[in-house]
Simulated assay, not measured.
Amino acid sequence: MTRRLRPVELDFVEAADVRLVFAREISAPPERVFRALAEDVPGWTEWFSAVTYARPTREGAGREIRLRGGMRFAETILAAREPEVYAYRVDVTNAPGVHAMAEAWRLTPTGTGTRVQWTVAADGTAPFRSVLGRAGPGLARAFRGAVTALDRRLAAG
């Protein structure tokens, strides 16, 4: 079953009931990381192992994402400010219990590299909030693996 979520804006990323924040420094410069996030949406399947399908929609204003395990998301891009932030909200999903969800990738220069910060923000039923909160360590591992793979991919050209 798919469900339409409450539309939220970028400020939701800082104000949501549940916020999971992960950060890591990589060697690639912010501009290259931004392009991989925002302009090469299909490429997400090459470096984020949980993503099995990714494509831009609505002439780049949205995305369609599928994850291992069968979760699906139709998203709207909230911000694409190179090289600082790439953010999107989930409009439609088959995930149970979620009422609103958004994610933001913030990129900060660090010498010749980038500090990549990923924030997952959500609101939903009490069971959903509990499950998402307990998923933090698994999401942290997925994030570390993803940005490490992205850094390798960008270094390889």
Score class of each variant (00 low, 15 high):
residue 38 A to P: 08
residue 29 P to M: 01
residue 101 M to R: 12
residue 109 P to Q: 00
residue 48 F to N: 13
residue 35 R to C: 05
residue 112 T to F: 03
residue 76 T to N: 14
residue 58 R to M: 04
residue 63 R to A: 12
residue 54 A to I: 07
residue 101 M to H: 14
residue 46 E to K: 07
residue 32 R to F: 04
residue 90 V to W: 03
residue 32 R to Y: 02
residue 47 W to I: 02
residue 37 L to K: 02
residue 34 F to A: 07
residue 91 D to C: 03
residue 110 T to K: 13
residue 129 R to W: 00
residue 103 E to Q: 14
residue 29 P to H: 07
residue 125 T to E: 06
residue 127 P to F: 07
residue 104 A to G: 09
residue 63 R to G: 02
residue 30 P to C: 06
residue 42 P to S: 08
residue 69 G to D: 13
residue 125 T to F: 01
residue 107 L to R: 06
residue 27 S to M: 10
residue 51 V to G: 03
residue 72 R to T: 14
residue 38 A to C: 06
residue 35 R to D: 15
residue 26 I to E: 02
residue 126 A to G: 07
residue 79 A to I: 00
residue 105 W to P: 01
residue 128 F to P: 01
residue 49 S to F: 09
residue 48 F to Q: 13
residue 86 Y to S: 08
residue 135 A to Y: 12
residue 103 E to L: 10
residue 128 F to V: 11
residue 37 L to A: 04
residue 113 G to W: 11
residue 108 T to S: 10
residue 101 M to C: 11
residue 126 A to R: 14
residue 127 P to I: 11
residue 93 T to W: 06
residue 71 M to R: 06
residue 75 E to N: 14
residue 100 A to G: 10
residue 80 A to V: 00
residue 96 P to R: 15
residue 54 A to K: 02
residue 89 R to S: 15
residue 132 L to A: 05
residue 111 G to K: 06
residue 70 G to T: 02
residue 124 G to W: 11
residue 51 V to Y: 08
residue 72 R to Q: 12
residue 48 F to G: 01
residue 71 M to K: 03
residue 37 L to C: 07
residue 26 I to W: 05
residue 82 E to H: 02
residue 123 D to F: 02
residue 94 N to T: 02
residue 135 A to M: 15
residue 65 I to E: 05
residue 96 P to W: 12
residue 119 T to W: 10
residue 60 G to Y: 07
residue 47 W to L: 04
residue 43 G to A: 12
residue 95 A to L: 15
residue 131 V to E: 12
residue 64 E to K: 04
residue 79 A to W: 00
residue 134 R to F: 12
residue 121 A to V: 09
residue 66 R to P: 01
residue 136 G to Y: 13
residue 90 V to R: 07
residue 77 I to A: 10
residue 105 W to I: 06
residue 37 L to P: 01
residue 62 G to E: 10
residue 118 W to V: 01
residue 129 R to D: 04
residue 99 H to C: 00
residue 93 T to K: 05
residue 117 Q to I: 10
residue 62 G to C: 08
residue 69 G to A: 09
residue 99 H to W: 10
residue 133 G to N: 10
residue 81 R to I: 01
residue 60 G to Q: 10
residue 77 I to L: 08
residue 37 L to R: 01
